[in-house]
Computed example of a mutant assay.
Amino acid sequence: MRIKNTVFLSLAVLVLSSISSFAQESDIQVVDEVIAQVNESVITLSQVKKEMKTVIESMVQEGKSREEATAMTENKRGQIIASLITEELLVQKGKEIGVENRVNVSVNQQLLQMMKRFNLDSLDKLYEAMRSQGVDPEDFRDYRRRQVTKELVWRSQVDERLYWDITSKEIKSYYAANKKKFTKPATVTISEIFLSFAGRDKAEVKKKAAEIVARARKGESFENLAVENSDRPNVSETKGKAGTFNVPDIDPQFAEPIKNLKVGEVSDPIEMEVGMEIIRIDKRTKGTNESHFDERAVRSAILFEKGPDARKKYMKKLQDDAYIKVRKSYQALVMPFLNPDSENKTTASK
């Protein structure tokens, strides 16, 4: 990574309108401090503050006090800046490999799902509803574009390549050494109703979840209850159906409450950080101890083990090939997270 170690001159960007939601109360012109340069783009102080504000609001929704959330987020400032830099590198890579059309299709599909969920017949009405909740539609689209772009880059440049680069010899060797992983596990098919805490009184959401469970146990249609109440964006299509899962792979947070439920029974409300979950058991199948060879399953298991390191190496190469210049006053804060294996070393620009 080519990181400039000289004094970072007072590079600034003149912003002619309000920078973001945290500065909407002022219509004066603002000179925005540049924190880092990433190839031809920059990471600005307003971006960092905006990201920190989002993190704080998320923590508050999860139940933390605003003071606690603010203090915790401030301690993560360097990590947040490093994340913005790595995100920018991935977004730039996405543009380079031409994923824009796929990104736009994905974002548009999500917006259509939101329109259906809220029974809105136009994009303008959806945007109006967003604004009424304090959400800028363009900010939302940009956020989703960046998230989808990152995922497509990871998938196409790392995961898919690693998946198909695994040799037949590796597959056979891995299977032979890990046969217990490839027994046929017990499975469970479930439907679910998710109630989000976001923007709501937590106690009221819990009360509503308990009422829905009571109604379901009295015989009301779980599908109708899901469509009427679930906050999943595609619930009108799924009717609450969540799919089939291998029992050993289920998160303990959900596995424990449903382990003794029979087909047709409904769980007590399960509290998560972001909301309440209600689960109905639709089907169960028993597992066996007999190993079963499935090439796709073996490839996926190898990918699961090797994937994190492969992504880390790919990210390091992106950084090494990039021109990244961090403002000198921020280097000590950012570098341990941006390049943790380098012991905070910097090199002169090539």
Rank of each mutant, 00 (worst) to 15 (best):
K150V: 14
E100Q: 13
E290F: 01
K184F: 08
M52K: 01
G307F: 11
Q133W: 03
D282Q: 07
Q319R: 14
I281F: 07
E25W: 11
A322F: 06
Q331N: 03
E51T: 01
D142G: 09
L303A: 04
M114K: 04
S122Y: 04
R117V: 08
K208H: 03
N119C: 02
E273S: 14
R155V: 08
A301Q: 02
E128P: 03
K116W: 00
G63P: 05
S173G: 11
E67R: 12
D32H: 00
P308Y: 13
D341P: 00
R280N: 06
A69P: 09
E40L: 11
A176D: 15
L11H: 05
L225S: 01
L89A: 02
S173W: 04
I278N: 06
S196Y: 04
A332C: 08
D201F: 05
Q29T: 11
I212F: 06
T54W: 12
K313Q: 12
S230T: 07
I250R: 00
I270G: 08
K345R: 10
Y163G: 02
L333S: 13
Q133R: 15
R117S: 06
V15I: 14
M52R: 02
K93C: 02
F254V: 14
V48S: 05
V326S: 05
L112Q: 12
L90G: 04
M276G: 03
E88K: 11
K350P: 10
D165T: 12
V7S: 01
I193R: 00
F254G: 01
Q24I: 12
D27F: 14
V15R: 12
K4T: 09
L318G: 09
V298E: 03
R200W: 08
E151I: 06
